[in-house]
Computed example of a mutant assay.
Amino acid sequence: MKIDLSGKTALVTASTGGIGFAIAKGLAESGAAVVLNGRSDASLTKAGEKLRSAVPSAQWRGIAADLGDAAGAQKLLGELPPVDILVNNAGIFEPQDFFDADDDVWERHWQTNVMSGVRLSRALLPDMVKRCWGRVVFISSESARNIPADMVHYGVSKTAQLAIARGLAKRVAGTGVTVNSVLPGPTLSDGFAEMMKDEMAKTGKTLEQIGKEFVMAHRASSVIQRAATVDEVANMVVYVSSPQASATSGAALRVDGGVVDDIV
């Protein structure tokens, strides 16, 4: 299967590192022009240089905007070219017990994880419908179906993404536009590496080793029995963004290594 996204423009939010950058790289490798998004011009410059090094032919531009509020979303939308593929990857997580998580914690997660995608989808979907082609992908999490006891607020925000994606898929039914969710599980992302840096320094273990131990300790139902790579997650997103995925819409596609223990 050869995925060719030449002539398409993709916006990947929160794409200066981790899963977001891997998705942007995968889309660029398939020929799409990519709009990178991060909170600062410095992070975008660094990500752009990294993208050009990995994909010399990449067409890209960067737009600095913090999507944690409506003003940031409006800034991003005001600088965007027409977009064919929207990947709603912006998200935060903060382990905190339910009884300690105040309204501010819930509001931060809701605004970034949920409303950022709502605002961008609301603004960009109508033009996709007019052009009779488009792809919207929400980067959710296996935590949407396997709510973590130490991050109920996070799990709720990720479940909300599934509902939004399914509802939007039905709203644009028959137009040539698809809307889907991708659900990563434990992944060797930049955030995971940052979280585990002290453990790596103390033990001398690699990130992959620590990732495997984490999975076996905290996600023992995993079928692959290791953490996924960011590229493995990106591969699913690139596919579902492609013309080849035209019959997939309203789906919740898991890249969780089989952590969620069911057959659907």
Rank of each mutant, 00 (worst) to 15 (best):
E94A: 06
Q59D: 00
T45G: 15
I23W: 07
E29L: 01
P95N: 07
L51K: 12
D66P: 06
D102T: 08
G38S: 15
E94H: 14
P81D: 10
N88W: 07
R52V: 00
L76C: 07
G91L: 10
V35Y: 11
I92A: 13
K25A: 12
A64V: 07
V34K: 09
Q74M: 05
L86D: 07
A47K: 01
A90C: 12
E29V: 00
G26T: 06
V35A: 13
G68W: 11
S30L: 04
S30Y: 08
A58W: 01
E29Q: 15
G91Q: 12
V55L: 01
G72A: 12
A64M: 08
P81S: 12
I92H: 06
Q74I: 04
G62K: 03
V87M: 05
R39E: 09
I63Y: 10
S43I: 03
P95S: 02
S30G: 13
D102K: 10
G48W: 03
S43Q: 15
V105E: 04
V55W: 01
K75Y: 05
N88M: 07
F98C: 02
Q59R: 03
L67K: 10
E107K: 13
S57H: 02
A32V: 02
W60H: 11
N37H: 10
D102G: 15
L36I: 04
G48E: 08
A64W: 07
A65N: 13
N89L: 10
A54R: 03
L80D: 05
E94D: 12
V83N: 12
F93T: 11
N37D: 08
W60F: 03
G68R: 12
D97Q: 02
D66F: 09
L80F: 05
P56L: 00
Q96S: 03
I92T: 14
E49T: 14
P82R: 14
Q59M: 00
S43C: 04
P81W: 10
Q96T: 05
D102H: 08
A73D: 14
K50Q: 14
P95D: 04
V35C: 14
K25S: 04
L36W: 06
F99K: 01
R52Q: 02
P81L: 09
G62P: 05
I85H: 09
S53T: 15
D97R: 11
R39W: 09
D103A: 14
W106L: 00
L86R: 09
R52G: 00
L51I: 05
F93K: 03
A64E: 08
R52E: 01
D104L: 07
F98R: 03
L67H: 12
P81I: 09
V105C: 03
A65G: 13
A73M: 07
L67R: 11
K50H: 07
I85T: 11
W60V: 00
I63W: 04
P81H: 12
P95I: 01
V83A: 11
A65E: 13
A32G: 06
E94S: 12
K50Y: 02
F93S: 08
F99S: 00
I92K: 13
D104N: 09
W106I: 01
V34C: 04
F93P: 01
N37S: 12
G62V: 02
G78P: 08
I85C: 10
G31F: 03
A47T: 05
L36H: 06
D102N: 15
V83Y: 12
S53K: 15
G31V: 04
V34G: 09
